[in-house]
Computed example of a mutant assay.
Amino acid sequence: MFSAVLDLTAAGDAAVDPDEYISALMAWHFSAETGSPYWLRRARSLGFDPVADVRTFADLDLFPNVINEFRDIPVEDLIPRGLEGADREIAGIYESGGTTGAPKRFVMFDRWMEFALSWDEFHYADLGTMNTLAITPSGPHMFGEFASRRARRHHGVKFTIDLDPRWIKQLIARGDTADADRYAEHLIDQAAQILSTQSVGILVTTPPLLERIARRAELVDLVRKQIRFICWSGAHMDADSRDIFKQEIFPEIPLKGLYGSTTILGMSRERSEDLPGGLAVFDPPSPYIVFRVVHPETGADVNVGERGQVVMNHLSKYALMPNNRERDVALMAEPLPGALGCAVADVGPVTMFDNHSVIEGVY
């Protein structure tokens, strides 16, 4: 019998003993009865005993960053053997964006996905029944499925468009910026047709595409008339752009971001209060998703208010992705009371990652 501390609690509930949680997590993922084939096999080459040696959040530093191995692991090997019944129902197999090479694949379980969605639910609680327009990737990208589930929660339908973000990245990588621009405008043309003919209350998109909407006066008017909430994610938004959207272009529409990654199977939510200077702060749902911000050269944690590289951890009974250095830099911010790790602010991409140029495109 494994500890009930691993069972999902209400979104935002950080009231668990962190050491008890980490110890139970190691026992789950590294026991033959409950662990996944991948982690049970990988444990033999770690050089330490996760159950005996990883007792605290800080001990996760012992793990190497294994995330690149997820490019070619059979997805069946990622399913923990201890999951049973409804816990084992799979929402989908989702892939990273392919920004730094071949995509990585992850198993998203239905119960986890519903929990991850609920983490941001308080932003939407009073919106009522309305339709959603998702100008987002779908297919292998979890962003589209989150938008579909958001629409169902508001008893509406989801309108979407055809969007292949990897094609734009290929165009940019080979210097074909003209075709990349034409493709991006093609996306906005599709969105414009929906906005001009359908009733939509929630707009979900990426900052580069929201910027292109803002360039068309007729679309700005349509958004102002019917959109009641804008959710952005999938790419970075700098503080100046965010301020212009909020104060000048869409001043009457709540604009909230989600910062996350497929490599953590979820996201952090934008805090209601900004940091001084208008910087958005993002809180992950501890203890299941936990951030650190570290010095890129030494790996040591930076101090509050200092800038460093983001390290992400997914720590649930559904998956284990510890100690993963992301392709982002951010300011370290104080976490919510009782939460592990830290919050992040002023997130932006590095220019090079794993010897690859970082190309965002539209996602």
Rank of each mutant, 00 (worst) to 15 (best):
93 I>K: 05
93 I>P: 00
94 Y>V: 02
94 Y>W: 04
95 E>T: 00
96 S>M: 02
97 G>W: 00
97 G>F: 00
97 G>S: 00
98 G>Y: 00
98 G>Q: 00
98 G>D: 01
99 T>P: 00
100 T>M: 03
100 T>C: 10
102 A>L: 13
103 P>Y: 00
106 F>D: 03
108 M>G: 05
108 M>F: 05
109 F>R: 03
109 F>E: 04
111 R>G: 09
112 W>D: 09
113 M>D: 06
113 M>W: 05
114 E>W: 14
114 E>Y: 10
115 F>D: 08
115 F>W: 12
115 F>M: 04
116 A>L: 07
116 A>G: 09
117 L>Q: 09
118 S>R: 09
119 W>G: 02
121 E>V: 09
122 F>I: 08
122 F>Q: 13
122 F>W: 12
122 F>P: 07
123 H>N: 06
123 H>F: 04
127 L>H: 05
128 G>F: 11
128 G>V: 05
128 G>K: 07
129 T>D: 06
130 M>K: 03
130 M>F: 08
131 N>Y: 01
131 N>H: 02
131 N>I: 01
132 T>P: 01
133 L>V: 03
134 A>E: 06
134 A>L: 03
134 A>I: 03
135 I>S: 08
136 T>R: 00
139 G>D: 14
139 G>Q: 13
140 P>D: 12
140 P>E: 05
140 P>G: 13
140 P>H: 10
141 H>L: 08
141 H>R: 06
142 M>G: 05
142 M>P: 11
143 F>A: 04
143 F>L: 02
144 G>P: 12
146 F>L: 13
146 F>C: 07
148 S>W: 12
148 S>Y: 09
148 S>A: 14
149 R>K: 15
149 R>P: 07
150 R>L: 15
150 R>S: 12
152 R>F: 11
152 R>G: 08
153 R>Y: 09
154 H>A: 08
154 H>K: 15
155 H>K: 15
156 G>N: 06
156 G>R: 09
156 G>F: 10
157 V>I: 09
157 V>D: 13
158 K>E: 13
159 F>R: 07
159 F>W: 15
160 T>A: 08
160 T>R: 14
160 T>S: 14
161 I>Y: 10
161 I>E: 14
162 D>A: 13
162 D>C: 11
162 D>E: 12
162 D>K: 15
164 D>Q: 15
164 D>H: 15
165 P>H: 11
166 R>L: 15
166 R>E: 15
167 W>P: 03
167 W>I: 10
167 W>C: 10
168 I>T: 07
168 I>R: 02
168 I>D: 01
169 K>V: 04
170 Q>F: 11
171 L>T: 00
171 L>K: 01
173 A>I: 11
174 R>I: 13
180 A>K: 03
180 A>F: 01
181 D>E: 05
181 D>I: 02
182 R>Q: 11
183 Y>S: 07
183 Y>L: 14
184 A>T: 12
184 A>F: 06
184 A>S: 11
185 E>D: 08
185 E>W: 09
185 E>C: 04
185 E>I: 02
185 E>A: 08
186 H>N: 04
